[in-house]
Structures are given as structure tokens and as C-alpha cells.
Design a protein around this nucleic acid. Sequence first.
DNA 1: TCTGGGGTCCTAGGACCC
DNA 2: TCTGGGGTCCTAGGACCC
Length: 423
Amino acid sequence: MKNLYFLVDCNNFYVSCERVFRPGLRQRPVVVLSNNDGNVVALSNEVKALGLPFGAPFFKVKNFISSHDIAVFSSNYSLYGDMSRRVMDCLGRFAPEMEIYSIDEAFLFMRGMRGDPVEYARQIRDVVNQWTGIPVSIGIAPTKTLAKLASRIGKKDPASLGVFALTDRACVDWTLAATDAGDVWGVGPQYRDFLRRNGITTAAQLRDAPDRWVRRAMTIMGLRTVWELRGVPCIPIDELPAPKKGIVSSRSFGRPVERLDELGEAVAAYMSRAAEKLRAQKSAAGSITVFLSTNRFRENEPQYSNGIACRLPVPSSHTPYLVRIASRLLARIYRQGYSYKKAGVMLCEILPEEDVQPDLFSGTHDTERGRRLMRAVDHVNRDMGRHTLRFAAEGSVKPWQMRREFLSGRYTTRWDEIPVVRA
DNA sequence: TCTGGGGTCCTAGGACCC
DNA sequence: TCTGGGGTCCTAGGACCC
């Protein structure tokens, strides 16, 4: 009996979601773009094989994409979010303890596992694929860090068919010796370069580095990583996601925006979204920040970026109130004569709703009536689709809205966009 | 024309307190 | 000769993740 972590990772997740509903794309190269059709953020294996790098600005690789007949999609978070939920629901049936780590990854914790873990993982892989259409890779190991590594191999090595275990000593040894230290979970570009300068290039060398040196150079986090490479679990499973300590909502604009009123509408829309998230976790925010900036890539244009924060007299989650404050803050940092590219809001000093202390003199802005209103709005938007009800301050024309030229349907969350099959 | 968005944690240093 | 000691809180900056 042993305790094992399974890392389940969806292969090229956004691409796979698009392919579920467009089977004709299974053999074709496919990419998905970031918000505003900015960068390439998901690539099918065929595209990776062609050498297109992750993160490339779309406009710079347009020719490459069309010359290789690559299918292109704008990000469709309604679809990916819902597909993710289906995958996670499915995984939850296989493990007593699960941590949803990101939209496309989950750790399963198998406490005191009996039987063949690889066989069990293959079963999970097949059921997820059958029920959701999403292909996954699964890494198995005694620690999360090793499980991450194992899933990478499961994905890359065709012989493993998507399941790879780092459970026996010899296998761990040669795998770590063949892995770049920079590919270890928790080692980013800065630490990778630092390690290289100190003669550490492989994961095996990192595992064997002296504790005191690691602790000094890479903080306690680095030391944890090293111990995990040695097979000592240091990063526990987090079953319930902790409530957010800060909520950011920001977007680049589809085209440059100059006018204060248009910026104001964008900021109102972002604040409205942020407040919705805030209420979803039953919290209130004690301070808000508004920021904006011009396009930093246009070096020959005048640049300006600024942000301003304000502490609220009483923490709130009431959209109209937060929007009012945000638009005041925006007016204070707005300067005429610039082409703005991006704006956003941040909610900080977040605390549980029930901990809010009304102010003795001004009372609370979130009256019972106000709270009922927001609950009703959230309810309608949850049932009938986001933006069914929205605040007039968000505007209706939205010239600043992001570009999404290659958007697919919200196949699983909207009756009017459900796929049609002709036989 | 054209370059994403949203998070977490740790540490050092300074202010301040008794 | 000789200039305390211990604690908390906050902030900015740096690192990482997907």
C-alpha cells in the first residue's frame, strides 16, 4: 500500500475542446488564440511539430498559419469552462481526494492505494475520453512535483500512451538525469539560469544539491521542490479552493480608445464582472484599484500608464456603488491626448460578507434591498447567460470590446448554439 | 491594424510599539 | 571602549504557476 499522486492533464486542452464539436479537425493542425486574438496560446501536436512557438503574436505568424492550412480559433471560455467542469466531474468519481489545479489539470490523491496504479490510470484516461471527448495524460508518483514530471513524459513519449509512473527508484533516477532542471515544476526562467550558472543543469543535480544552499538561494519554496524530487511529499492536496484575496478584471481593447466616456464604460463592465466574482465567493472588498495604459509596443507614440487605489469606508460587493467609485478614480488618472490600449480594476482587502462592519455614521452601502437586487441579477445571469442583465454604465455599443474573429459556438451552454448534425 | 489575463507565495527592510 | 531586545505590521519587489 502506498500513497500516490495522479496528475491528470488534458492534452492541448483548448484545441481538444474545439475538436470535440468539429471532428473534421482531428487530423488537422489547430491553434487557439488568447483574448483579443493576440497570441497563440494552444497548439495541436501537428502545429507543435511544425515548430510554431507557444505565445507567438498572431499577427506575426499569420502567414505561417495560412500557408500550413492551420485552423484558427479565438478563445471561447464559455466552452472551455464547461468542458473543464465535465472532465472534473468525471475525475471526481475515481478518487477520494481531488484538487482542481487549473482549468485543465487536477491532482488525484490515492491514499493507501492497492492494485496496479498504471492500470487504474488507463481506466481513468479511457472513461474521461469516452464521456467528454477530451484526451488526457496521467502522471503517477509519490509527490506532486514528480507526478507533474511523469505526466509530461506520458504526453511526450508515444510508447506510454498517456500514462506514466515514476514509482520505482531506477526509473526516477534516469528520468531526472534526462530532465532539464528548468522543466521541473517550480523552477522558472530566473532560477533555471541561476542554477545553470552554478553548474546545475539537470533535475537529478537539483535533487542532489545541498539543502542549506538551496534554502538560501531559492527560499523555502525551492527547498520544498528539491525534497519533492527526492520523493518526500511537501506540497499537500488542497481540496477546497481558498477564497481569492484579490480579484482582477482587465482587458486589452479591440481598438485604441481615447475618450473618457468610452473608458468609463469599459471600466464599469470590468468592475461589474469583478463584483460578480466577489459575490460568488460571498465576500466584500475593502479597497479598489483602477488602472489604464497605452500600447507599450508602439514605441513612437506617447506613452502613459497609471493606477490609483482607494479604500472604501465600508467594504462592499454592490456593483452600482463600486462602479461609481471606479469611475471617479478613472477620471482622476485619465489624461486626454493618449490612445489607450488597456484598462482594468482590482478588488483588494477582501473579506467574508458576514465580517463587514457597518460604519457608525454612514451605515453600510449594502442595504438589504441592495443585496436582494444583486442576488436577483446574479441569479438571472446564471440561469439565462451572462450579460442578460447589466448596468447601463457599461454602455451598449462597446467599441472597446475585444476582437474575437474566429469564435466557435458555445455548444454546451446555449440552446441556440447547440451543434446541428446532418445525416 | 496587430503582442493575453489572472492568480499565489516569500523575503527583506523599514516603521512602529513596548 | 561600551548606545537593548523583541515583536508586529506593512510594502515593494521578485519569483513562480496556468
